[in-house]
Design a protein around this nucleic acid. Structure first.
Lengths: 191, 191
DNA sequence: TTATGACCATTTTTCAAAATCGGTCATTTC
DNA sequence: GAAATGACCGATTTTGAAAAATGGTCATAA
């Protein structure tokens, strides 16, 4: 039962963060869930925030892996970007930990959680940026600032998936995909 | 001094809302500023929220007028949309009342203020929607859902003006204009 | 050497008293 | 007598001090 204590602690903390968020998770709670003394946690992690960082760093890695897994060399830039963003935002919606943290960001604004969100956004933007750079180099898309473009693509996706359904009927997956193509890729112009 | 009491009250309330926001403005405060008894306010306005609505309705009208003033029949759809959105978001940044209300939305989330924000967004989307519909009818741009498109355009503008400068160096006005043209109008595709 | 939980300083929560608020209406003003 | 007023009311919010809880430590136990 008490084999790899470090793993037990991470498991327990993940569970608690997912259920209660960062702020409402106590170290006593984690210790109890992990079946270790509280002091033991501090032999593996400097403090609560580092324990949290360990977990969310892993989460971000997983998200990146999911996005990368959906990448297909033979598909167009647009197809790949669309897939990547969709995977990432689907991940957000499906994993209890990210759901809880998004809620905590909005409702409490816990600094550690805000930092995580920034890191997450930066990671996504960087990933899309790479896809963009490749497409630019291949001449598949116009010259453009990859950082700003990646940023805009992410914001567009968030607008279509999250913001739109704040007040209107949610859009279907392939509707979103079509709109994404229209706005960012093809452009509205007829000339 | 006590000429048009209604105007005095509106002036005083506007000042107080601009300085302290909706929640932190008291009816006593407004009465004092307007040099009237508190009861007098209630002979003109049903309650605090209606006084507020009167003022922000006027504000929204002004914004719309500013946007409409910058409209030029002879310019392209892109030019007009860009001008309209720029005017509107510049208005936001320059008027003390909107600045304060945006802050209150983020920091407190006062219901009356949230309602105003929704109304504001809806008005902007509707206005852009009209410009879009005209451009579609003229065949200047592709067939598209004008509501979603207007929504996306607004969100893109907000992303470029407000969100980007949360963490990075603000973009210049003509940079934003160029990016807007690139993403929404021309599209990234080289094919 | 490693694990632990009683312990500590600090922060957060609680909760009741006090203050403040939006709104009313009997009285005053013109 | 119509319009204006501010003392007043019930409801909500703020305050502040006591109590509880929390992150982190470290002397002791395993």
């Amino acid at each position: 039962m008490a084999k790899d204590r470090r793993q037990m602690i991470i498991q327990a903390a993940t569970k608690s963060f997912s259920l209660f968020g960062y702020k409402a998770t106590t170290m006593d709670q984690v210790a109890k869930l992990a079946n270790v003394g509280k002091g033991t946690i501090y032999t593996f992690f400097k403090n609560k925030e580092e324990l949290f960082n360990e977990i969310v760093t892993e989460l971000i890695k997983e998200m990146k892996a999911t996005a990368e897994a959906s990448f297909d060399e033979n598909l167009s830039f647009y197809e790949n970007a669309n897939r990547a963003l969709f995977q990432i935002l689907a991940f957000r919606k499906e994993h209890q930990l990210t759901i809880k943290l998004f809620q905590e960001e909005r409702e409490i604004g816990t600094p550690a959680v805000l930092e995580f969100m920034e890191r997450l956004e930066q990671t996504v933007v960087n990933y899309i940026k790479n896809i963009l750079q490749t497409a630019i180099d291949k001449g598949e898309i116009k010259q453009c600032n990859p950082e700003i473009t990646a940023f805009v693509m992410l914001k567009l996706y968030i607008a279509l998936i999250f913001d739109w359904e704040q007040s209107r009927k949610p859009l279907e997956k392939d509707e979103i995909s079509k709109l994404f193509e229209l706005y960012i890729f093809k452009g509205l112009s007829n000339r």
